[in-house]
Design a binder for these strands. Sequence first.
RNA 1: GCCCCGGUGGUGGAAUUGGUAGACACGCAGGACUUAAAAUCCUGUGACCCGCAACGGUCGUAACGGUUCAACUCCGUUCCGGGGCACCA
Length: 925
Amino acid sequence: MEYNFSDIEKKWQQHWKKVGTYQVDNESTQPKCYVLDMFPYPSGAGLHVGHPLGYIASDIYSRYKRLKGFNVLHPMGFDSFGLPAEQYALDTGQHPAETTRKNIATFKKQLDNIGFCYDWSREVQTSNPHYYKWTQWIFLQLFNSYFCNTEQKALPISRLIEKYATKGALPKKGEPIPGRHFTADEWNHFTEEKQQEILMRRRLAYSKYGEVNWCEALGTVLANDEVVNGVSERGGHPVVKKKMRQWYLRITAYANRLLEGLDKVDFSDSMKEMQKNWIGKSTGAEISFNIKGQPKNQSGLTVFTTRPDTIFGVDFMVVAPEHACIEKITTPAQKPEIEKYLQYVKSRSDRERQSEVKQITGCFTGAYALHPFNGKEIPIWTAEYVLAGYGTGAIMAVPCGDERDFAFATHFQIPITNIIGHHFTGKEANPTKEAILENSDFMNGMKMSEAIDFAIQKLEESGIGRRKINYKMHDAGFSRQRYWGEPFPIKWVNGMPVALDEKELPLELPHVATYKPGPEGQGPLANIKEWTDMNLETNTMPGYAGSSWYFLRFMDPHNEKTFCDRKVSDYWNQVDLYIGGTEHAVGHLLYSRMWTKVLYDLGYIGFDEPFKKLVNQGMIQGSSRFVYRKNGENKFISKAFIEKHQIQQLHVDVNLVDGVELNIEAFKKSKPEYANAEFLLEDGKYICGSEVEKMSKSKFNTVNPDDLVVQYGADTFRMYEMFLGPVEMSKPWDTKGIEGVHRFLKKFWRLFADETQGLIVTDEEPTAAEMKILHYTIKKIEQDTERFSFNTAVSTFMIATNELTDVQCHKRKILLPLLILLAPYAPHIAAELYQSVQQAASMEEADVVNAAFPKFEEKYIKESSKNYPVAVNGKMRTTINIALDADQKQVEEIVLQNDIVQKWLDGQSPKKIIYVKNKMINLVI
RNA sequence: GCCCCGGUGGUGGAAUUGGUAGACACGCAGGACUUAAAAUCCUGUGACCCGCAACGGUCGUAACGGUUCAACUCCGUUCCGGGGCACCA
């Protein structure tokens, strides 16, 4: 009886599929557990070994929870809208729906090979009209809602309209800076356009003009990804920023709740930190500066600062190059220079503007602001280091306290005012809050940290400014000038967006003849006459639309009446465990948290955080291999000799290399041009170079799980992926080690079966030593699985197998529970052996998937003594076996009698003997 | 540039709360079985020093410094690698 993994795996996968073992009910008396993976984008390249890392982890956890008696929801689907499919369509003319269908089929087949316990009857695909009907429906909820600042939640926009019609929108008492206010009477006499425009300022999904990367030569808008150093990745054409009408989600309204919600979820500290930084809450003041020569209180310049205490240290102002005021304030003399500068900035990405800090650029507008307290004239500059999207897009620069302001002042020789005395050396800025203020009028002599509040008070009293909380986060751009995304359920009437009726959903994506961009950088939908004739919105939604709520659809995937029945979402509730990569730290996770909060506010679901616990899997990097071709010849030089030749380094497919040794025959066959290649070998071998890089097809370092499953089986593959290291950590892939795990499974098999005798399991009573091995393993596997330490769990299985082999244990009472422990990790081999060992009545009973997790009993592993490490001055010198219940005095006696301890004491008596029960003993001399 | 994570033998990693650094594997070396190979099994394997021996010594967790009876673990500084930075997913 041999371990024939391919037969076994096929048999059980078919059985589980036939019986519907993994289908989950929405009703159960058992406690629920919802385990979810971040669903993949089905790329044309198929699955590589990096993808399944998180899936295997969640699969193990799901199976474990099932053994523990939970009703486990563990679904899978596809995030199937996206740019690559559209690019592929542009290149080949194939419809994205078609390529997507093919890619999904490949992915599913690859996933099924690995033996996951997904309930495929719940599969969702975001590009399926049955699914995106509800994405569009949720969009309409967003469009038809506003964020009520009093209640701090989303409410139907009808409530706001009613309020405007009866009470108007009047300034709050003491509001110093006038906003856009009107009475109820005024509202009722506004034109509809005007009313809609006002409502647009409050809708959670709204439309306004925003900037995009525009490439004139390609006639299209590009993703940041597609822009490299200011030119398009394809073709290298110039890219500039262009204003276009766009849709946005008012995620900023939820900034504070997104921040506070982090206290309620179990994400890693670093993940919370990243989200906090993204939201970027800061408290400070908004201050208005009048401009010299302009009427007061009209076209002033408003800045946001976290340090109003430094207001007397302002030496210049900087406005973002996009700031609307530049046009108004620039003096005729400076105009040519400013225009030249703005042209330059247009070609620069935000990233470049922030990162290239050593290169200081800017331009004087010729205008001056007036200091609000003393009327001093302050020059107004524009510079790329101030971003339009942050704060008010304008800053007051205090060079003695801010590094970038200091560098700017130095570069342009702007005189610096020192308000912090000796804390400022003149050589670098000092951002301290501890200094005592000087040259600061009414704040002279105050400590800066205390002056902040005082300054705000003064600003508010004199109507110059007000306390302000600012968020770095800005509203999320929600439209793309693309084809392969959800169409907006919106049509334009008299320049106003009007929501389609729910009954008209889904608004299906029409077929197009070409995927080329529409006129003026609009999306391909603008090329379709029937579409534009109906005045339908030609933008589509971005990739994150469908993924912002898919975890809800999995609960109730076939519901035609609603996106997810409230009763069902009340049962499944939050996702208990969510596994995915950190690359989604801020995007997807914040959007789905926001959508959940909106749906909660509107009463559609009963929880406002989607993911209770989040585990981030690390990236599996590729380990690339290189061959070295002699320049101008079809000759390859082994690594040892490359210094001596003029060579070209080429990526070689890692699948043609064993470790670093090239399989020359396979290499020759891989490409016709290599068929007659010559080789300069070392010790008869061709040795390749290697480097760790991102795993990608273009680097020829991808490893396909299918190949490994064929060679070693799914169980070996699953356990090896886990054995590589902690799930959260990134690590390079190395196929070499997989043999070890495979050997382990074969060894494990031999505990049960012999090649000649077949099954060798006996009914003998286990010894105390064997029970100890079993119960230690139960404890460790349970602990490690609960804390997602799957790599140490695998080594625990190895240790148990090694120990049981050593004592030649083939006893049913030990092996049967061990199989249940192993089942989540290696389900096929466990199922096969369980069926053989267990003399069960029915197939259902004989299936280890339905077994109960063994119960750990302390009594079997209890020890009465411990081998204590004994250290002298912190250095371990020997170990002594001492009873666990020994007290300090007894321990001291035993230790001092020990020969080795005596040797190290060298006649002296120890100053102190530290004895930590169950840990160690340390003698201090 | 900013934010987050990581750095331990030839390699992947272990050390769960500050308490025996290197578990478990890979690789390598040697051996057993075999006509041979595969498979399997056994032994050794951080570096260095002393030695007939070892239950002998010194060093060692990116580098430097600190806290502590005790530091891979805590604090500070530096270096290196990875991820994110708002239209890749």
